[in-house]
Design a binder for these strands. Structure first.
Length: 276
DNA sequence: CTGGGGACGGGGCCC
DNA sequence: TGGGCCCCGTCCCCA
């Protein structure tokens, strides 16, 4: 398998803001060669490997760290054009500034939780680990809270949401769920209400046009980090999700699911054997 | 039918 | 315990 793989050319009209002027960003030069995984190594697995990372919470996603603990093998990143080695300047999307843009690797390793997990594993000591799944926590109370998630739904400790009756074995999870019935965060513009402040924040971006999450490969910006992540996957030529019926492959699980619903498994007795 | 993006909800984890 | 942050996943729409 070649070390680099090409990314399909993005549509020229892909920029999202209707009526917005062409963005003055300067996309990276083609061929958009991305770091290729080792043979037999899934791209996402490769990029998502939480090999440890200096955590820096509360500052949003940092740009590609100068010295990430995520240390890929030399031969895997020998290409100087590799996005891994680049962190582009801030882009502007119409009137809204893109505050951060992410290289492929920087993006995939800036999972705050993964970073912390990686580091905690590296640190090793003074962590409270769960005997059932091995996850570690900084405090015994955090571990105790986590342990609740291992309870069975049949457990006497299970409690039901008074509003919808959904059962939870973890009290924090129940508390969180109960909040979803309380839509107290209301949009001043359209009146839509949300259960959590950050859901409202994300929603407000649809009014303001703010797109803080930029792709450093093509300059495209997104209001939602999840959407940037999905977009990042489109830069990969690797398609990890294979239809068990016709063996067609897809870059995103959602595409495969759509395929199952629409094509191969339509009217079939086959249940959706979704996997990757 | 596939590819891609926008919007959003649920829930886990940290402090 | 609660707030904040984040990821995963889904639904919907459009090209």
């Amino acid at each position: 398998m070649p070390r680099s793989f090409l990314v399909k050319k993005l549509k020229a009209d892909a920029f999202p803001l209707a009526g917005a002027p062409a963005p003055p960003y300067a996309p990276l030069e083609p061929p958009y060669a991305l770091p290729g995984p080792a043979a037999g190594d899934g791209y996402l697995q490769h990029c998502l490997a939480p090999a440890g990372y200096n955590p820096d919470k509360k500052q949003g996603l940092p740009p590609a760290p100068p010295d990430p603990a995520y240390a890929p093998g030399q031969e895997e990143y020998s290409d100087p054009e590799s996005p891994q080695s680049t962190f582009s300047a801030r882009y502007f999307n119409g009137e809204a500034a893109v505050t951060d843009s992410y290289s492929m690797d920087a993006f995939f390793i800036t999972d705050g939780r993964s970073r912390r997990r990686g580091e905690s594993q590296r640190r090793g000591s003074h962590r409270h680990s769960c005997p059932e799944c091995g996850k570690t926590y900084a405090t015994s109370s955090n571990l105790s809270r986590h342990k609740q998630t291992h309870r069975s739904l049949d457990s006497k400790m299970a409690r039901k949401c008074p509003t919808c009756g959904k059962a939870y074995v973890s009290m924090p999870a129940l508390a969180m769920h109960v909040l979803t019935h309380n839509l107290k965060h209301k949009c001043d513009v359209c009146g839509k209400a949300f259960s959590r402040p950050w859901l409202l924040q994300g929603h407000m971006r649809s009014h303001t046009g703010e797109k803080p999450f930029g792709c450093s490969h093509c300059g495209k910006a997104f209001a939602d980090r999840s959407n940037l992540r999905a977009h990042m996957q489109t830069h990969s030529a690797f398609k990890h999700y294979k239809c068990k019926q016709c063996e067609k492959t897809f870059a995103l699980k959602s595409y495969l699911n759509k395929h199952y619903e629409s094509a191969c498994f339509k009217g079939s007795e086959h249940s959706c054997a979704i996997g990757n």
